[in-house]
């Protein structure tokens, strides 16, 4: 008797090969109003989390940057300015709807020339070894089916001395904050999703997937297992979000 491998999709258990498709459906559904929902859900604080990610990246003129799960291009737009005309930024996303929204948005803002777009799976990055000075994945890792495989792929395509930055929802560090956050995620968030995108299920998935994502210390260990050195993390907004950093030695 053959046992089928399963993984989590929010609180639900699904076949491993099904997860990517289910996640894709979620993002096809929310792509058009993704930015608006991000602002509404976080009260605009996601911009602060992303700003700190940019500051910690140490990206400078001439660098090559890969923005995985780059979605609607918030980080890419900032990196494009920092790397300048001699640098390059690759915005990669597995979801073509998100990629289209991101590409249109950046082109409309005049962010062109040093930005490239790739539809790519974080587990199987289609780039040569040692290609990037910096890789970021913001609010994307929890949707990846095999996170260890993705971290190893990122390690492979980073140049020696390159930095990986993982910005992701995490575990709040205070019991009271955790309680408030739970109520917000499971009651208010799906309601807002229903109101704005007419899709409560996608936002319920979002809340559930956050709870299933590895906590700060576990993710730090996973990064070390993938080969990263000097791994550390910064809790932001009481641990609601954590920014992990690792270096390819």
């Amino acid at each position: 008797m053959s046992e089928e491998k399963t993984t989590h999709f929010g609180f639900e258990q699904v076949k491993v090969e099904e997860k990517a498709e289910r996640v894709a459906d979620v993002f096809h559904s929310v792509a058009a109003k993704y930015d608006l929902m991000n602002d509404l859900m976080s009260g605009g604080v996601h911009r602060i989390w992303k700003k700190f990610t940019i500051e910690l990246s140490g990206v400078r003129a001439g660098d090559t940057v890969l923005d995985i799960a780059g979605g609607t291009g918030d980080l890419t737009a900032k990196f494009a300015r920092l790397v300048g005309p001699k640098g390059q930024v690759v915005l990669a996303d597995i979801n073509d709807s998100m990629l289209k929204v991101g590409r249109d948005k950046l082109t409309d803002k005049g962010v062109v020339g040093n930005v490239h777009y790739t539809q790519a799976d974080a587990q199987y990055l289609p780039f040569p070894d040692n290609s990037f000075d910096c890789i970021t994945i913001a609010f994307g890792l929890r949707n990846v089916t095999d996170k260890d495989l993705a971290l190893k792929a990122m390690y492979r395509v980073l140049k020696p001395g390159g930095r990986l930055l993982v910005l992701e929802f995490s575990k709040p560090q205070h019991a009271l904050l955790e309680k408030v956050y739970d109520t917000y995620s499971f009651r208010i968030l799906p309601f807002m999703g229903k109101l704005v995108t007419n899709d409560a299920d996608s936002y319920r998935y979002l809340a559930e997937s956050i709870r299933m994502h590895p906590d700060q210390e576990t993710l730090k260990g996973m990064m070390a297992n993938a080969g990263f050195s000097e791994t550390k993390y910064y809790n932001m907004t009481g641990g609601v979000v954590a920014l992990h950093k690792g270096i390819k030695a």
């Binding site: 989390w49 700190f52 550390k232 910064y234 932001m236 907004t237």
Partner: peptide, 8 residues
């Protein structure tokens, strides 16, 4: 920035 401080 030390990892102990919330940079938000």
């Amino acid at each position: 920035v030390t990892a102990d401080h919330d940079p938000t």
